[in-house]
Amino acid sequence: MKTKGKQTGSIQPRKRSFLETLKKDWSLWTFCIPGIILTFIFSYIPMYGVQIAFRRFNAKQGIWESPWVGLRYFQRFIDSPYFVRTVTNTLILSIYGLIVSFPIPILLALMLNAFRHKRYRKVIQTITYAPNFISTIVMCGMLILFLSPSVGIINTVIKSFGGEAINFMAKKEYWRHLYVWSGVWQGMGWSSVIYFAALSGISPELHEAAKCDGATKFQIIRYIDFPSILPTATIQLILSCGSILSIGFEKAFALQNDLNTSVSEIISTYVYKVGMIDNNMSYSSAIGLFNTMVNLVILIIVNKAADKMSGTSLF
Rank of each mutant, 00 (worst) to 15 (best):
M139F: 08
T269I: 02
L145N: 10
Y48W: 13
G163F: 08
V302A: 01
N295A: 03
P204A: 10
L245R: 01
K211N: 08
A130W: 12
D225K: 00
L178F: 07
A197M: 02
K211G: 00
P103V: 13
I153E: 03
V138A: 15
M188L: 14
R16H: 10
G275L: 09
T232V: 10
R176L: 04
V84F: 12
K273C: 05
A252K: 06
R56A: 15
R121Q: 15
W26E: 01
T39H: 14
I33C: 01
L206W: 12
W64R: 01
S285Y: 09
S66A: 04
G141C: 05
A306V: 07
N260P: 09
G288L: 13
M139P: 00
T261D: 07
F83R: 08
S10N: 14
Y283Q: 09
F83C: 09
M188Y: 07
C212L: 12
R119H: 13
W68P: 02
S182G: 10
F54K: 03
T30G: 13
L38N: 03
L38S: 10
G187A: 05
R85P: 01
S268P: 04
I301W: 09
K172C: 08
I238L: 09
A197Y: 05
T88Y: 11
K159I: 06
S243I: 05
F83M: 04
L38P: 03
K273M: 11
L237Q: 00
P103E: 11
L296D: 06
I235R: 02
K211A: 14
T312A: 10
D25C: 08
S268C: 07
W190E: 01
D79F: 13
D278K: 14
I153L: 15
W181Y: 12
L199H: 04
F196K: 00
F102E: 06
F74H: 06
Q236D: 13
Y82A: 13
I301Q: 11
R121W: 07
M309D: 00
A165P: 03
Q51K: 08
T312P: 00
S17Y: 02
T232Y: 03
R16I: 13
A59K: 06
A53I: 07
P34C: 05
T30I: 12
L91S: 11
Q75L: 09
P149Y: 02
E20S: 14
C32Q: 14
Q7H: 09
I63K: 00
L259F: 15
V263W: 02
G311T: 10
N257R: 04
A165N: 01
T232I: 06
M139V: 01
S135V: 08
A114V: 07
K211M: 13
F102L: 12
K273W: 03
Q256Y: 11
Y174Q: 03
T128C: 10
Q186M: 11
G97F: 00
D278A: 12
I134M: 15
V271S: 07
I244C: 05
R76W: 00
R56H: 13
C32A: 15
S80G: 01
T136D: 09
K122R: 11
C140R: 08
T88P: 06
S203F: 06
E208A: 09
L93H: 02
G248K: 05
